Computed example of a mutant assay.
Amino acid sequence: MTRIEFYVLPDSTTAGRTRAACQLAAKGWQHGLPVFIRCQDESQCAEMDDLLWGFRAERFIPHELFDEDPQAPVVIGLEQAPAIGQGLLINLAPTLSPHTDGFSRVIEIVNQQPELLTVCRENFRLYRQRGYDPKRVEL
């Protein structure tokens, strides 16, 4: 069964959330997992693409937008199904992915923005309703 984790950040900045997504993508890729970063819209996809280009000066994180190469080690997309299964999904979108079962692990990144906390609490509840056992991880 897919492992679901909610990584809880102590701050409320959007930048902290996207930086955490970059760190998790790098870690997943270094451990040999295919990584899919699910964004909320095209603008966030472009932002993540830019961030990953310059995230680590000493080590490039190989990534592409889904429409450019759905089989890249780190893929940035929206609602697309993963081209390579059983990898890591980093969900930045406010809803659950329709392809949750296609991943071995799902990470939801939560910060202290009140609106995001409300959305993530609802997602936590929805995962439980669907038979998953989501865990909370404090960062």
Results as ranks from 00 to 15, higher is better:
P34T: 03
P34C: 05
P34V: 01
P34M: 01
V35G: 03
V35F: 02
I37K: 04
R38I: 09
C39H: 05
Q40W: 10
D41C: 02
S43Y: 04
S43H: 11
S43L: 07
S43W: 05
Q44F: 02
C45L: 02
C45A: 08
A46P: 00
E47M: 04
M48S: 01
D49W: 04
D49T: 00
D49K: 03
D49G: 00
D50Y: 01
L51F: 08
W53M: 07
W53E: 04
W53I: 07
W53C: 06
W53N: 02
G54W: 01
F55E: 06
R56A: 13
R56F: 04
R56M: 12
A57G: 03
A57C: 00
E58L: 04
R59Q: 15
I61G: 05
P62W: 09
P62R: 07
P62V: 07
E64S: 15
L65Y: 08
F66I: 03
D69F: 10
D69E: 14
D69N: 15
D69S: 11
Q71G: 00
Q71A: 12
A72L: 10
V74K: 06
V74Y: 09
V75I: 12
I76N: 01
G77P: 10
L78P: 00
L78T: 07
L78F: 08
L78K: 12
E79T: 11
Q80K: 02
Q80F: 00
P82Q: 12
P82T: 11
P82S: 12
P82M: 13
A83V: 08
I84P: 00
Q86Y: 08
G87H: 03
L88M: 07
L88T: 06
L88S: 05
L89P: 01
L89T: 03
I90E: 01
N91W: 09
N91M: 05
L92T: 04
A93H: 15
A93R: 12
A93V: 08
P94T: 13
P94A: 13
P94E: 14
T95W: 11
S97R: 07
P98Q: 11
P98D: 14
P98G: 07
H99T: 06
H99D: 12
T100V: 15
T100H: 06
G102Y: 12
F103P: 01
R105H: 14
V106I: 15
V106K: 03
I107H: 09
E108N: 13
E108D: 13
I109M: 07
I109T: 08
I109F: 11
I109Y: 10
N111S: 11
Q113L: 09
Q113A: 13
P114K: 10
E115S: 14
E115M: 07
L116W: 15
L116A: 10
L116I: 14
L116E: 10
L117E: 11
L117K: 15
V119N: 10
C120N: 15
C120W: 06
R121D: 10
R121C: 09
E122W: 02
E122L: 12
N123H: 09
N123D: 05
N123I: 06
F124V: 06
F124L: 10
L126E: 14
Y127I: 09
Y127Q: 06
R128P: 04
Q129I: 02
G131T: 11
G131W: 13
G131S: 12
Y132N: 05
D133K: 15
